[in-house]
Design a protein around this nucleic acid. Sequence first.
RNA 1: UGGGGGAUCGUCUAGCGGUAGGACGCCGGCCUUUGGAGCCGGCUACCUAGGUUCGAUUCCUAGUCCCCCAGCCA
Length: 568
Amino acid sequence: MSTPESSHSSNFIRDLVAIDRAAGKHGGRVVTRFPPEPNGYLHIGHAKAIALNFGIAQDTPGGMCHLRFDDTNPTTEDPEYVQAIQEDVRWLGFDWRGKMFYASDYFDQLDAFAVILIRKGKAYVDSLTADEIREHRGTLTEPGRDSPFRTRSIEDNLDLFARMRAGEFADGVHVLRAKIDMGSPNINLRDPILYRIRHASHYRTGTAWCIYPSYDFAHPLSDAIEGITHSLCTLEFEDHRPLYDWVVAETGAPHRPQQIEFARLNLTSTVMSKRKLLELVEKKLVTGWDDPRLPTLKGLRRRGVTPEAIRAFCEHIGVAKRDAIIEMQLLEHFIREDLNKRSPRVMAVLRPLKVVIDNYPESVVEELDAVNNPENASAGTRKVPFSRTLYIEQDDFREDPPKQFYRLAPGREVRLRYGYIIKCVSATKDPQTGAITELHCTYDVETRSGFVQEQRKVKATIHWVSAPHATQAAIRLYHPLLLPDQAKLPADQDWTRSLNPQSLELLSGCVVEPSLRSAAPGSRFQFERQGYFCVDPDSSSETLVFNRTVSLKDAWAKIEKTQQAPQR
RNA sequence: UGGGGGAUCGUCUAGCGGUAGGACGCCGGCCUUUGGAGCCGGCUACCUAGGUUCGAUUCCUAGUCCCCCAGCCA
């Protein structure tokens, strides 16, 4: 039973669902739901919930997963978000198969359920102020006290609730509360609020209503109305579960869903809370909700991350009840793994250093054959122009090469990818700054790529771009949003102080091979030896703009780092 | 000090009374016209203390530590 029969690894929720199904609970049906409030954009934490809910439905014969907008708070919600959320869920590769709902569609039914509760004496209109209600609620260690209005007659409650609904009262004057137990050790059971007055226009129902149900009332009933069998949510709702069950039972709702909680996703070196994301956007600390530094799905998409990578990540991290913080490197691993298989390779020089091949004829241009993707032979080959002057990466030359540096240095040889072995003859320096401005090299005509007669080995192969054929580009490199080891600032301190001021690195004057000239926004490439990049929508016909999705693993960077770190 | 949850390699995660497995990461090697990819090998983990049992990560007891809850947010 617990052996995985699909591509999905199991987890305790899948196990519970399988057990219920085997036992014929809910008639053997499995219906889950993803219930966002349309008050913000989705992020990778939501992706975990989406993958879980839709994944279970997908893997269960006859299983369904609904998309439901929990839009019970008119003051925070916006249709822009309902659109964006649908796009994001679809982009991730999931399909609600027409089962898209809104809690606001249930306002009539919810209202009727509230009346049922009032009639049963299980709900009452409270006329305490918000402050008074808080005072009566007690504390974590002290029980609450009954409101003086708790004993109102059913008739009065019915009348008052009708007048609340009719708009006779201002915001906050009355509230409908469940009559449960003000002494409960579970604060959620101390007569929770079911309805509040809000004279606000709802983006879907307009001004038809001026009372709105709370989450604790609307959510379980929405689940029940839709016939949800397994209502999956995050851990912080664990002690709402008794209330969830109470609402479903006391209203006599026709169906009893089961709430199951799991730990939300946390990732290192980024922020996931709605509040912090919003703050970053509003204070213009990032460029918008789709800033590629953000873990929003829009941001990840713009950065070049694929939905396949996100799904693989979600699958791998599992679902459990213990709080966990997943290392960003794990996400990066799945991004690289996916991009490695699918990305065409091209050559691009991020920080160009001009190279003149002194013994190469000036007027000649050769078209060299380059492999598009060594992981995928069917991707074929392309021609890359080679000429006497070209650009290589500044990092690929060292005037005074350290140990284990295999690249170019005075008197040293290196292979130009798909081309010749060249030897560095001299380096020209800026007399002012001492910076290397130009390299002079010679090439060995015998060593052209593909010529078999000579099998000379060199330690390194470097990428390059022919100078006269180069296409200009701007490239954006992204670094962690947060400074390392700053995750735990004192709570009273401004968290934005832990932001990495260098999270965005803008490179201009980059050069890329000419095959990229007309690359479309969104297209992804591996820049050989550098990383995975995608064309940003900011690209224009004049300037190509690339985002680095993720770097390639860099063995030399590691060596260099350990060389610099003195032994202890 | 109320209630609800949770503790397994550095980080995630499996385990359901019978040699603690996998992934990421890290270290080393092989291979390589990407210091990429791939391949091979290695890496001080069951919170503590008792108990039950032939045998405990698993069951029991008592602790310890961590997370959540006092919105008319979700």
